[in-house]
Design a protein around this nucleic acid. Structure first.
Lengths: 176, 176
DNA sequence: TAGAACGTTTAGTATTTACTAAACGAAATA
DNA sequence: TATTTCGTTTAGTAAATACTAAACGTTCTA
């Protein structure tokens, strides 16, 4: 690998680290993905360590996060017990996977807390001023509705894909 | 305000703080928004300080962030030079504003770094192995295309709104 | 079955982030 | 023009986060 190639890869990696951080993931996640994305062949953990500049522990953590997000696939070489990883190149597939992942974890729990607030308000009949209660219920309900819509949208996007058509491009076609 | 009301507001605020943090914003941003969202009337900075439990400096910072994101509107009372703030209750409007904001700042810069990588690769004819160069160009170009599609989608969503119809609900109707 | 080759986990640390407290500057009022 | 009333900015700090280095458990090999 020439010096110039290395330099180009380096700056690309920094760019993706930055994007990763911007979207709320660790920078290392972006760095590891960048290395994999610019590799024609699957890489082992040790190769990732070398090329990313991170330590084994960090790479292990980050690459597992990427796999969970669907941005990276594990693969194996016959007669080699090392794990190999390669980048997912279908981004539409990846983004759906990310949405799904985000949806099902923290987000869901947080949304539930709004739901709980609503229930508490419903139950508070009598123990607070009726006008205020009505106002609060209205507002919290509106937020709840919004979250539900986001959720439905997310599901719809996933569904669209199962038809085998590229999601984003299709929405665009419709909106044109 | 009864003790129970305060308690309900409190737990709602904690929920939104959590959501805020989950989406990569400071928790204080969620807390301040929650207080405003549950208030029937616009609140001054000092009232926000009292009700959110944060200090003036923190509220000042967070409420300004919210205003930039379009989640909060500044308003004024006649004969009162205090700033007042109220929550945006049209979430579809707000989410578009957020998308726009995110698009135009860091994200844009990060995307530009991918663009630069591509240009460097184009210019590297001769100074690196041709097969490798071709592979790298292909991959980086694919990423670039993906970002462009995201950008186009975001623009399309904004455009849809300018027709005066509720964005998300419409996409859903189409996808059904 | 001893040793080597892996990936994961843990304890400690550095960095980043968002806060508080207080100083500050601008604008209104007296 | 002195004083009060605001919102913002700054310097310092506390908390959260993501890293390194090293220990560890497991699986394969000799």
């Amino acid at each position: 690998m020439t010096k110039e190639t290395a330099q180009i890869k380096q700056s690309f990696t920094e760019g993706l680290s930055h994007i990763s951080h911007f979207w709320g993931f660790p920078k290392g996640v972006g760095a590891v993905f960048a290395v994999l994305y610019l590799s024609p062949a699957p890489l082992s953990l040790d190769e990732l360590v070398t090329q990313s500049g991170l330590t084994k522990g960090a790479v292990s953590t980050n690459v597992r996060a990427l796999a969970r997000l669907g941005l990276v696939r594990r693969s194996a070489k016959l007669g080699d017990r090392k794990d190999y990883y390669e980048a997912e190149t279908d981004f539409y597939k990846a983004i759906r996977s990310i949405l799904g992942e985000r949806q099902n974890r923290e987000f869901d729990r947080a949304v539930r807390s709004v739901q709980e607030t609503l229930e508490k308000l419903q139950a508070a009949k009598g123990s607070m001023q009726e006008a205020e209660r009505k106002f609060l219920i209205e507002r919290v309900q509106a937020l709840q509705d919004f979250f539900d819509a986001i959720d439905a949208l997310s599901r719809a996007v996933s569904k669209l894909d199962s038809l085998g058509i590229s999601t984003v491009q299709n929405i665009l076609k419709i909106l044109k």
